[in-house]
Design a protein around this nucleic acid. Structure first.
Length: 112
DNA sequence: CGATTGACGTACG
DNA sequence: TCGTACGCCAATC
């Protein structure tokens, strides 16, 4: 029987599967794991992800609005935007430009 | 051990 | 269209 902590591991697995130049959202991951309403847990998992090995590319995970809500948890906070721009994802006003085009939905990509 | 918070999202007015 | 309320579950105070 799977342990509840597996949810966190699954979140990390999904984030690591996100291709370069693509981004996903907390809700999309939670939805894929069957915890659509537990998007907060995905965010909490990211908080723990900073201590994981290998490091989880949390900078590819943004909120439903494509806003870099978690940038304040990076070091420095601007690192998130910098990493995304480095992968070809433009950020404007702490928000992903053309977010819909860069959006990587695990349910569409992994479910098949 | 109880109350509050948190990298979110949906529902309702 | 915008603002407020609630749910979700774990960690922290």
């Amino acid at each position: 029987m799977p342990k509840k902590t597996d949810f966190f591991q699954d979140v990390y697995a999904i984030v690591r599967l996100v291709p370069i130049g693509r981004v996903t959202s907390y809700g999309a991951i939670g939805n894929y794991l069957g915890a659509a309403k537990s998007a907060r847990m995905v965010g909490w998992a990211m908080n723990n992800a900073h201590s994981l090995q290998p490091p989880v590319p949390a900078h590819r995970v943004v909120n439903r609005n494509g806003l870099l809500t978690g940038r304040g948890h990076f070091n420095p906070p601007s690192l998130m935007q910098q990493l995304l721009e480095n992968e070809g994802v433009l950020i404007k006003n702490d928000q992903v430009v053309n977010f819909k085009a860069h959006f990587w939905d695990p349910m569409e990509e992994l479910k098949l």
